[in-house]
Amino acid sequence: MRLNNILPNKDAKHYKKRLGRGIGSGSGKTAGRGHKGQKSRSGGFNKICFEGGQMPLYRRLPKRGFKSIKCFYKTEIRLSDLQNLNISEIDIFTLKNANIISKFTRVVRVILSGNLSKKIIIKGLKVTKGAKIAIEKIGGSIM
Score class of each variant (00 low, 15 high):
133 I>L: 11
121 I>V: 15
31 A>E: 02
59 R>Q: 14
6 I>H: 07
30 T>R: 10
104 F>A: 15
72 F>V: 05
102 S>R: 07
140 G>V: 03
11 D>S: 06
104 F>K: 15
93 F>Y: 14
141 S>D: 13
141 S>K: 12
48 I>K: 12
79 L>V: 05
14 H>K: 13
57 L>H: 13
62 P>F: 00
125 L>W: 03
28 G>Y: 04
55 M>R: 13
114 G>H: 01
27 S>V: 07
33 R>N: 08
66 F>G: 01
132 K>S: 09
92 I>K: 04
62 P>I: 05
90 I>S: 01
122 I>F: 02
107 V>Q: 15
140 G>Q: 00
120 I>S: 00
135 I>K: 03
57 L>N: 13
96 K>A: 06
93 F>G: 07
45 F>H: 12
52 G>T: 07
58 Y>G: 03
83 Q>S: 01
44 G>F: 03
24 G>M: 05
28 G>M: 03
131 A>M: 02
94 T>A: 14
1 M>P: 09
17 K>G: 07
83 Q>T: 03
88 S>T: 12
37 G>L: 00
17 K>I: 11
139 G>K: 00
35 H>P: 08
107 V>W: 08
59 R>G: 04
30 T>G: 07
112 L>R: 12
120 I>E: 03
138 I>L: 06
129 K>H: 12
14 H>I: 13
80 S>Y: 07
137 K>I: 08
94 T>P: 06
92 I>C: 04
124 G>C: 04
26 G>I: 11
